[in-house]
Design a protein around this nucleic acid. Structure first.
Length: 768
DNA sequence: TCCAGGCCCGTTTTT
DNA sequence: CGGGCCTGGA
């Protein structure tokens, strides 16, 4: 098990029970160390599978971890707590729902449900949603929860925040009344449960001897607090992460947790995995050199025993269109050289860049796959069906009620619903319970809807899950509605797929044990136990309690909320992989294209003004580079269409942070302040292997580039020096628009980057 | 209730 | 430019 490991890997795997921080560089065998560690602890008898808690961020990572542990050790992994933060907290809350102050059948709101609930709340309370936009409110509430703060804990230093806090409190009351829980609430409730309830805390602290955390650099404040509580009874915490791959600060991740952890727990037990098994030398050294420009790193230098390999191929094109065209030609070359399409990845900083590339690939007939679209359980028709199903389980779920009360349309208008809402509020009940209080025609339509929900509940109460789902889809009017819709074919197919998903879910639960909830199964005897409220184990009949004490429907609904499904458009067939750099984290490919490496795009203009933002962009570039095994391309365009206007940008600073020796320019590399157009001709003769590249027509250089943008009597170009009365001297790093609408992005020497309207700002041109 | 057209906005995203 | 959202008129 451990003899195939290198020495730091083996050291990490076989560490005695103590806290440790493993700094695992890209491609250094992180998952292998984590899973082997678990298997080793079990095999050497140091801990039973039940004493291990392993936590990840994504379901995919959790599945992979489970699969790899069970492939190393032929043990029953059913009783092990391997899962996502949210999945494990859900499991804990179901088991101790009473102590946590929740109904056992609490529903989970996904991000969209939560937003809908907030909109409804603001309307009901007459909050001005211009001053308090729902998204802003959502950010505020989730931000507070992720810091572990309830309304009473948030500091109210101005009126705006005071009002926000009031809204937060109202929102909490609404969720509580409806029996629903949003994503951050799952974590916060579980944390509060452990911190306030001594018996429950003692139970879990006694149980878990080893707590292992994947992607530790992505944890937020609350997740770290939760871990500290769980491990507070003497468990060993084994945290694996890479501060250089921290790219989720914008959603609350706190890289600082890593250095805090080292200080508070690891006390110097820091193991560095620096040998990289993925990439060749040029690629790795480029990544090392780039990331060395960041400050405050925990420190790490990747190396490889593989040779230096090929240099990074760099291409600069005049426009985004020609960049895409070049890319398609190059991709076809790679394919005709015998590379698999699925081993070719095209990465970009932002989703908007994909369209031009998709268009070019599509026109050329190259199969491709785009990651990041709508996921299965997020589709409109699926969310509607789930809303009906939720009402079967809990008619007081107002979010679901509102979603389908008039879908398909059944003559219940805004006016009626407003009335219903008023009644519900006046009597402090759910919408469902307030139906009888609404008179008139709208009221009778409402009553009919409520009756239908009741009838459906009754009809389906004894049905197995797949038939239940099928029945609800068929008799709620959903199916009929989409059958009438000329463009409803896809939606019908998805609804049928939902029935299949329910069937698969039941089979999976039978075979692999329990997807969510509280059951713990002893590996040898197969006896099923449920952790009771006071932390005592109660044996249940496994045949009766197949879903952890939850009904199959409830378990399925939790599953749907916690695992929204694949977010890749078309599965199957061998296809070129298109995705954002964020989505590529954790993946690897033989050949990688990093596109749009321009100032303003990568690093993104919204991030360059503050140092920490720029460093995160640099880490993003580091992640992108380290995805490549053999071949890496950098590409950029001098101009591109963005927001309906042509924009001009300079080469990204990241290009100059990679030493020249690692790069080979396939297009001419010239100075930026050159007044000549940088683009001369487009042909480059073959690659380093001498493969001949078919000659093609030279793209036409954009006419505007040489002259730049003209405003009044002044002509502005990218790279030009300018002086501003207040901001001082600077360099134009981006131009967009024409005439009086034209804007320039300027990097000032003293005050940083600013975007100025050229029709307004007074600028002098400085001769360099 | 429904749909068309105007309007606004534009980084990254998992649970 | 293009998508999502809201509003106002039929």
């Amino acid at each position: 098990m451990i003899d195939k490991l290198n020495s730091p890997q083996r050291e990490a795997v076989t560490l005695p029970p103590q806290h440790a921080l493993v700094l695992a560089g890209a491609g250094s065998g992180k998952t292998r160390v984590l899973t082997t560690r678990m298997a080793w602890l079990i095999q050497t008898g140091q801990v039973s599978p039940l004493g291990i808690l392993a936590v990840t961020f994504t379901n995919k990572a959790a599945r992979e971890m489970t699969a790899r542990v069970s492939s190393i050790l032929p043990i029953d992994i059913r009783g092990m707590w391997i899962g996502t933060f949210h999945g494990l907290c859900n499991r804990m809350l179901r088991a101790h729902h009473r102590d946590a102050g929740l109904p056992q059948a609490f529903q989970i709101l996904d991000t969209a449900d939560q937003l809908a609930a907030i909109k409804r709340l603001l309307k009901a309370n007459g909050v001005d949603d211009d001053k308090y936009p729902p998204r802003e409110v959502q950010r505020f509430i989730n931000g507070a929860k992720e810091e572990g703060q309830r309304p009473g804990d948030v500091e109210a230093y101005d009126n705006f925040r005071r009002r926000m806090i009031e809204i937060y409190a109202l929102y909490e009351a609404q969720c509580q009344r409806e029996g629903v829980v949003d994503f951050p609430e799952l974590l916060l409730r579980a944390y509060e449960l452990l911190s306030r309830n001594e018996p429950v805390r003692a139970h879990y602290q006694r149980r878990f001897k080893h707590v292992l955390v994947d992607e530790f650099q992505d944890t937020n404040t609350l997740q770290y607090k939760w871990l500290r509580l769980l491990a507070g009874g003497g468990a060993s915490m084994f945290a694996v992460g890479d501060d250089d791959q921290s790219i989720y600060a914008f959603r609350g991740a706190n890289v600082g947790n890593m250095s805090d952890f080292e200080r508070d727990y690891a006390h110097g037990t820091v193991i560095r995995l620096e040998q990289n098994y993925r990439s060749y030398g040029h690629i790795l050294d480029a990544a090392n050199a780039l990331i060395s420009h960041n400050n405050g790193r925990l420190g790490k230098n990747l190396w490889t025993e593989q040779g230096e390999g090929e240099q990074i191929r760099v291409v600069e094109q005049p426009t985004d269109l020609s960049e895409a065209q070049w890319l398609v030609d190059e991709v076809r070359g790679l394919i005709s050289d015998g590379r698999e399409r699925s081993q070719i990845a095209v990465l970009y900083r932002s989703n908007a860049q994909s369209r031009v590339i998709e268009h070019a690939l599509f026109s050329a007939g190259v199969a491709y796959k785009v990651y990041g679209g709508l996921r299965f359980f997020e589709r409109q028709e699926i969310k509607h069906a789930l809303a009906y199903l939720r009402l079967m389980a809990n008619p007081d779920d107002d979010t679901s009620w509102m979603r389908v009360v008039n879908f398909p349309p059944r003559g219940i208008g805004a006016r009626t619903l407003e009335l219903l809402g008023d009644q519900a509020r006046a009597f402090d009940t759910s919408l469902s319970s307030a139906v009888a209080r609404v008179p008139g025609k709208g009221g009778s339509n409402l009553a009919q809807f409520a009756m239908m929900i009741n009838k459906l509940s009754f009809e389906t109460r004894l049905l197995p899950l797949p038939e239940l789902v099928e029945h609800v889809i068929a008799h709620s009017g959903l199916m009929a509605h989409y059958e009438q819709d000329r463009e409803g074919a896809d939606r019908i197919e998805n609804l049928n797929e939902l029935v299949n998903a329910a069937a698969a879910f039941v089979i999976e639960a039978d075979m692999a044990g329990l997807p969510a909830g509280v059951v713990v199964q002893a590996p040898m005897t197969g006896a099923t136990t449920v952790i009771a409220d006071a932390g005592q184990d109660v044996v249940l009949d496994p045949m009766q309690e197949g879903f952890n004490g939850l009904s199959p429907l409830m378990a399925f609904l939790s599953h749907a909320a916690l695992e929204a499904g694949d977010n890749q458009a078309q599965a199957g067939q061998d296809a070129v992989q298109l995705m954002t750099v964020h989505a590529a984290k954790g993946l690897e490919f033989d050949a990688v294209f990093i596109t749009g490496i321009e100032e303003g795009l990568f690093p993104h203009e919204n991030s360059v003004s503050d140092p920490s933002g720029l460093e995160e962009e640099r880490r993003l570039m580091y992640v992108a580079i380290t995805r490549a095994r053999e071949r890496l391309y950098f590409s950029l365009a001098q101009s591109r269409m963005l927001h309906g206007q042509t924009r001009y940008a300079m080469r990204s600073r990241f290009l100059s942070e990679v030493p020249d020796v690692h790069m080979k320019w396939l297009t001419p590399k010239q100075g930026l302040s050159d007044s000549e157009p940088r683009w001369k001709t487009s042909h480059y003769a073959g690659d380093t292997y001498g493969r001949q590249v078919a000659p093609r027509a030279a793209p036409v250089p954009p006419k505007m580039l040489a002259s730049g943008v003209t405003v009044g009597a002044q002509q502005f170009r990218v790279g030009q020096g300018v002086r501003h009365a207040r901001f001082g001297e600077g360099t134009i790093i981006g131009l967009a628009g024409t005439g009086l609408d034209a804007q320039a992005q300027i990097q000032f020497r003293d005050v940083g980057a600013k975007t100025l309207a050229l029709g307004v700002a007074k600028l002098d041109i400085v001769q360099s």
